[in-house]
Amino acid sequence: MWGIDPLMDSNSKPNVRRAVRVTAGAGLERWRVRTAWVFLAPTLAVLALVAGWPLLRTAMLAFTDAYLSRMAEARWVGLENFRWLLTDGDWWRSVQNTIVFTVASVSVQFVLGLGAALVLNVRFAGRGLLRAVVLIPWAIPTVVSARMWRWMYHDVYGVFNDLGLRSGLLAQPVAWLADDTTAMAAIVVADIWKATPFMALLLLAGLQAIPPGLYEAARVDGVGRLNAFVYITLPLLKPAILVALIFRTLDALRVFDLIYVMTSNAVSTASMSVYARQQLIDFQEMGYGSAVSLMIFFVIAVFVAAYVTAMRASLVEEG
């Protein structure tokens, strides 16, 4: 089998040729580099096709007045779309919504996730099961969790209203998702439920990398548990915390599914992505919608750069 591989050199005596190359040293290296590029080519081609090209097209369309049903007649309009965007109240509302959503959900996820990670880091019967169970909210499709939460938030038959009324916390049922004052909070709670497991698991991995000997030594020296947490755990966990926070922030900034399924295109809760899709597909404004998408791209690019830098640092550190 080895000798008849189609990718091998067409030379009828491959063994000999290869052996010559191996002894050639530098030649082998050059040959390996060429192989690396040959193997990378399909992946790079696919990524260029499905990511690079569409991104480029989005950037081009952003400067035109393209309309979905008559794309061929698109005209170059310069910065017109961006000028319009800057004065569009609904866009700024979506920016504000996205920031509120991101800050609120990521900060609560961090606190709860750290708590859950500390619990999961303790050895106890059933820890493996709990660790698997914690993954359930993460694995459920976002569309499904959005539907489940919408049902729990139902203004008449929802479990939250039922519990609230029974316990006397609510005087009357609340239309959680229809009421502008509660809708965003309700969405944030659903996101906290969905994404806290991810935060917890990243932090748990960080916790498990801390050598247990450090805690032993601290205990011998009479350091209390709270102090050990503040002076040992937190500083050593910092890289994991950083990466988890940036990762979750990135995810929260591009939120679409959860908000779209829970409150559709409602202005009071629409995120940047929801707003962009509405322009692109529902209103068929390919030009303007692309301008919106490009803006989102740049906002998120800043965070991606921060993330990649953090990853590079950790990669260099470990060698």
Partner: peptide
């Protein structure tokens, strides 16, 4: 990491 929305129109 990039937002899916950024490639949506081109895609």
């Amino acid at each position: 990491m990039f937002p899916q929305i950024a490639v949506l129109s081109g895609l």
